[in-house]
Design a protein around this nucleic acid. Sequence first.
DNA 1: CAGTATCCTTTATGATACTG
DNA 2: CAGTATCATAAAGGATACTG
Lengths: 120, 120
Amino acid sequence: MPQPNPYAAKCPTRLVLDRIADKWTVLLMGLLDRGPVRFNQLRRQVEGLSQKVLSQTLRKMERDGLVTRTAYPTVPVTVEYSLTPLGRTLARTLAPLRTWAESHIEEVLCSQRAYDVSLV
Amino acid sequence: MPQPNPYAAKCPTRLVLDRIADKWTVLLMGLLDRGPVRFNQLRRQVEGLSQKVLSQTLRKMERDGLVTRTAYPTVPVTVEYSLTPLGRTLARTLAPLRTWAESHIEEVLCSQRAYDVSLV
DNA sequence: CAGTATCCTTTATGATACTG
DNA sequence: CAGTATCATAAAGGATACTG
């Protein structure tokens, strides 16, 4: 690749951005960064995330080389997801985003209220 | 707010994450971080971003207190968007994401190819 | 230039049922 | 437990036309 440029429509970095700039991915990476987690653990820990969407999201993350899926032949089957080394580098990049959301939430809410009032 | 927790469905930080974990926002913040930009400049610089979606995205960013919109009474009208101080803190948080996409794109593409082949 | 409004199509998500 | 498959619906996005 000569010059990665996410502002160009066909640049693959655009595809990656598309993938990682996703609410569920950000949340899931945060949980996975703590260690291996099972499917239903993730499901329970992220409120509002349906089984279907969790499954889809994990599949994409696996395809992108961010997580590995390990199935243990127990009965019933146990499946563990964990970050790859690549995934860990991304997790560390995404962590500040959750932190930002937490520490600036008040300012954002305040701004939203002011904006909404000004429209009346 | 007692304990911001984006993993809870009703936590406002979830709303913020939702908002900022968006491809266009990430790209726009990157451009705006360089200085004030006009509407059509943004439109031209971000390939694939339609006027409608750009407009919607800027409106949301304005509502969240990330950008300010300034209209100059020229003919025809000139409108400049620039980051607020709050927006600048977010821009700095998002920058590593674009960098990550650029520097790890090869690994991701490679992983995708391997994944897709393994499915055949 | 910088939008808004409308219509219409494409995607994404939700609910439900089923399986190794 | 950890999924997939299917159908229905809701949400997002594109195309086009129009305005101060």
